[in-house]
């Protein structure tokens, strides 16, 4: 598509227009997906709690998220008088933007990736490390006690779990031999006995995939690690002073981040856009459908955990990150590199 636009409009402009269209083709469906996934999650929670969940707006309540969005868009954005106004308004934009730019390197199918860069996984790590600033700046610029506590908690929690996520990703990179997400997906083809596509069933990687799932929950601030917005202690955490669209941007950004973590989990461990079994008829289904099914399954696990597991205490969150996940993932890096030295690189 880029080539076609470049012949029509010239080199630079054609590239620009083509990429703009591709960016919109990812960002707009992503927002739609976020709206639907919020509805889906509320239905899940309803089912887990033997309630009905949202079922009034539209058929089966499908339009609930759009009704909520419309309501929020019509509300006033209140800026507290003691707040640092510029930073207060920049913070939600930052969170929302970071949640979107991360999707640039996710492969949706064979060659279906916006930016096929060599350092794709490092790009994910780099861009997601900016995410914490949205929360920290919000907490500080609100000039209020609860958001501030929440910001401090978020900073410590996200930095801690990024360490173990980094080590987990290293294990996958060692097996795949590349930082490029498309190549990581292709490396999983027939990984288990030439039959199953996906790293997760490999006994050396399975523990890492579990650690990744739990760390992803902590990294996105989801239950049972939602200490940053623990309503019994901190009202609504860093979002306390926000209203209207500024609040909605946090909401959208959070769910886009959760979806991204599920997409990453699917791409790194569950074989991305490959079908689960390496069998020719299964390749007739488009890869993007397999990827979406895997993302949805991951998201279902996320909401299952959120609906059933009680919240951790803060010192327990820190203990889990530093004293359990970090040593395990470090030992696993040594194990994996030893195994690969013996099998793949022994010659």
């Amino acid at each position: 598509m880029t080539a076609w636009f470049q012949t029509q409009l010239g080199d630079g402009l054609g590239w620009f227009v083509a990429n703009l269209i591709l960016v919109l083709a990812i960002a707009l469906p992503l927002m739609l997906a976020v709206a639907m996934i919020i509805y889906g999650e509320r239905r899940f929670w309803g089912a887990f709690a033997l309630r009905r969940g949202p079922n009034v707006v539209g058929p089966f309540g499908l339009l609930q998220s759009f009704a909520d969005g419309l309501k929020v868009a019509l509300q006033e954005i209140i800026v507290p008088s003691a707040a640092n106004k510029a930073l207060f308004l920049i913070a939600p934009i930052l969170t929302f933007t970071v949640a979107q730019i991360l999707w640039a390197v996710i492969p949706f199918g064979d060659k279906m990736v916006l930016s096929d860069i060599n350092v794709g996984l490092l790009y994910i790590l780099a861009a997601s490390s900016i995410g914490v600033y949205g929360v920290m700046i919000a907490g500080w610029s609100s000039n209020s006690k609860y958001p501030f506590y929440s910001a401090l908690r978020a900073a410590a929690q996200m930095v801690s779990y990024e360490v173990s996520i980094g080590f987990v990703l290293l294990g996958v990179v060692m097996f795949a031999g590349s930082f490029n997400l498309s190549e990581i997906v292709l490396a999983q083809k027939g990984h288990i006995f030439g039959l199953v596509n996906g790293f997760a069933l490999n006994p050396l990687i399975f523990p890492l995939s579990v650690i990744f799932m739990i760390s992803a929950m902590a990294e996105t601030g989801r239950a049972p690690f939602d200490l940053t917005e623990a309503e019994s202690e901190l009202v609504a955490g860093y979002q306390t002073e926000y209203s209207g669209m500024a609040f909605a941007l946090y909401w959208l950004g959070e769910y886009a981040n959760v979806l991204l973590m599920c997409a990453l989990n699917a791409t790194l461990f569950w074989g991305g856009w490959l079908p689960p079994i390496d069998w020719a008829p299964l390749y007739l289904v488009p890869g993007i459908i397999w990827l979406f099914a895997k993302i949805f399954l991951g998201f279902f696990i996320f909401s299952w955990v959120k609906a059933t597991v009680p919240r951790y205490r803060y010192d327990q969150v820190m203990r889990l990150g530093w004293k359990i996940f970090l040593p395990i993932s470090l030992i696993w890096i040594v194990l994996i590199s030893g195994y690969l030295m013996l099998t793949r690189y022994s010659a």
């Binding site: 490092l122 790590l125 861009a127 490390s129 900016i130 600033y133 920290m136 900073a155 990024e162």
Partner: peptide
Amino acid sequence: AMLLVIVYVGAVAVLFLF
């Protein structure tokens, strides 16, 4: 470039800000 962002923006500056 990625290392600069991961290490300095993701870790060092977070601690500064903290």
